[in-house]
């Protein structure tokens, strides 16, 4: 600071003051920024093609290290879960009915070559073609379902940015905040890696980077990008608009509309997850359209809000302690 000006005597003091201010810096709570419209994700699994662009776009923007490659064999999902350095995760769920091709009863075991028995006539050279069954005339109309009966469900998972976020409620340092966009954000200059948020999260999202900086990490909803009005990296990259980003209120209206669209097309199993206020008593700012029950995607259908446990459990503590105290008093008072 003062190398040229020769304020040598002042330096140690300045430095110490600086050190002290640095030490105390985290204690200075900045004024919250003025509230903006709530921003969130609507992840519509009916549009997901499982390309995993979201996973990479997230890694790229946030410069997150790759996880150790591990081939899992669980369909095309080698990512397995969200984590400290994985903030988007695409799931693959195979729901395929087994249609066993019919074979002649005599050949039911393993069929060895060569075997060219026919059970439908293959037209032969010089054959009277009129002997073959009639072709259907004019088309009778086709009503193809929106998805074929065999399904390979895909879903890009991400932090739910809960309106009442258990991680935020649990955080003892105030590192986790609801930002001005009502997104849930871990302030890395504050977090000391206590790990309480990890067990508070009902969605398997937030994690501590034990191999890295020892702090808690999760999707930031690209807080830095939001500051400049840019889309989060995953939503921007998603080729099929399966990940939509926008104002939560609008997204929720869009989601309802989309649900109606799909249900009209016969997808009776389609449902929204986290779009109403039910989950965690306030809903999710990052919510989903699912094509099956939440459990199929490892989503809890109605998780408890951990902070609601504080009072009843504390009551138990107080009552028990009181009883035990009284007993102790009683016995001590005994002659």
């Amino acid at each position: 600071m003062s190398d040229h000006n020769g304020q040598v005597s002042a330096t140690p003091i300045t430095e110490r003051v600086q050190q002290l201010t640095q030490l105390l810096a985290p204690f200075k709570k900045e004024k919250p920024l003025p509230e903006q419209p709530k921003m969130g994700f609507f992840t519509d699994t009916s549009l997901c093609i499982g390309c995993k662009a979201c996973e990479i776009a997230c890694k790229q923007w946030n410069q997150l290290p790759a996880t150790t490659p591990e081939w899992t064999g669980t369909s095309y999902d080698n990512t397995q879960s969200l984590g400290a350095t994985t903030w988007r995760h695409v799931q693959f769920i195979e729901q395929i009915e087994r249609r066993i091709p019919h074979v002649n009863a005599s050949d039911e075991k393993v069929l060895k070559l060569p075997l060219f028995e026919m059970d439908t006539p293959v037209p032969q050279m010089g054959m009277d073609l009129s002997a073959l069954p009639e072709l259907a005339g004019t088309p009778t109309g086709t009503a193809l379902p929106f998805f074929s009966t065999d399904r390979w469900l895909m879903r890009s998972d991400v932090c739910k940015h809960c309106a009442n976020a258990p991680c935020q409620e649990a955080c003892p340092t105030g590192a986790i905040i609801h930002t001005e966009f009502d997104t849930v954000y871990v302030q890395q200059d504050i977090c000391n890696g206590c790990g309480y948020c990890v067990v508070a999260c009902p969605f398997d999202v937030i994690a501590r980077d034990s191999e890295g900086d020892g702090q808690a990490h999760k999707c930031t909803l690209c807080y830095d990008r939001l500051k400049d009005g840019m889309k989060p990296a995953c939503a921007k990259a998603c080729p099929t608009d399966s990940i939509q980003f926008g104002e939560v209120e609008q997204l929720k209206r869009d989601a309802q509309e989309r649900l109606g669209f799909l249900q009209e097309r016969g997808l009776t199993d389609a449902r929204l997850y986290g779009a109403d206020d039910k989950i965690l008593e306030g809903g999710l700012n990052s919510f989903f359209l699912l094509l099956d029950e939440p459990e199929t995607y490892n989503l809890p259908s109605n998780p408890a809000r951990p902070s609601n446990h504080v009072l009843p459990t504390s009551l138990g503590v107080i009552v028990t302690a009181a009883v035990m105290g009284l007993i102790g008093t009683f016995f001590f008072k005994q002659e």
């Binding site: 669980t74 769920i93 999260c201």
Partner: peptide, 8 residues
């Protein structure tokens, strides 16, 4: 989902 843990 493949018996992957649902919470951390």
């Amino acid at each position: 989902y493949f018996d992957y843990p649902a919470v951390k």
